[in-house]
Design a protein around this nucleic acid. Structure first.
Lengths: 114, 114
DNA sequence: CTAACCGGTATCCCGGCGGTAACCACGTCA
DNA sequence: TGACGTGGTTACCGCCGGGATACCGGTTAG
């Protein structure tokens, strides 16, 4: 998921900052903990992940819940608003799937290394 | 069109660089000349517009046609690929129209100045 | 006691985006 | 002859996003 060559990271369509969209997709199937998010988002630093999560929280896209147990445990989950973003994101992904090769070919033809 | 307060410039959804998407929308209803593009895109500098246009051209989104008449005349037009981007952009705009207020409210509630 | 895990924060660095300003070639007009 | 419009290019500069690294407080496992 989200390997460096994945087209989803290369579409001209972006949601918020670099990770905003990917984080939302990671939360699509239920809440995730901080460290669970770092796995699929290969290479994200803790700082950047924290910042993106804070931004998403500020925008009402996700909730942050710290469980008071003895072990530190924080879960992030999508709000209805965040979930509603999945729809246009799906449209963007559909576009990318259909037209990604075209875009790549155009770049190659323009002399840009693939 | 595209005044600084327009939500379209503030959605978390972005297409390419800052202007990529707006340029495509400007070309939606037919070809436009360089200077015609600078009008709706208030405040864009020639440098940035040129760079964005080159990027769009490189990606096969638009064509650049210089007419050989006595006066210098260059027109930019959407390719089918560029036109196909209008679809997910419409989805993004629909989302923004529906949920923009929600996002704003969330930011305000988070103590962020509106 | 020590190490590791969790969920971060603090600091530094770098590259790229975006903006300003100056300049330029070409052609037209007065 | 000079000013002006068109469609740029170039140099410079500031800011911010993103990455790497180090550290930290609390808890638990060995």
């Amino acid at each position: 998921m989200f390997d460096p060559v994945c087209p989803s990271g290369l579409t001209p369509i972006r949601f918020g900052d670099k990770w905003y969209g990917m984080i939302i997709r990671c939360l699509e199937h239920g809440p995730r903990r901080f460290s669970e998010l770092r796995v699929p988002l290969r290479g994200i630093s803790a700082k950047v992940l924290t910042r993106s999560l804070r931004a998403l929280e500020r925008d009402g896209m996700i909730t942050r819940t710290a469980y008071p147990g003895p072990v530190q445990r924080v879960e992030y989950d999508l709000t209805p608003l965040g979930r509603s973003l999945l729809e246009p994101m799906a449209a963007a992904c559909a576009w990318a799937e259909k037209h990604w090769e075209e875009l790549l070919d155009a770049r190659e033809a323009a002399g840009h290394p693939r």
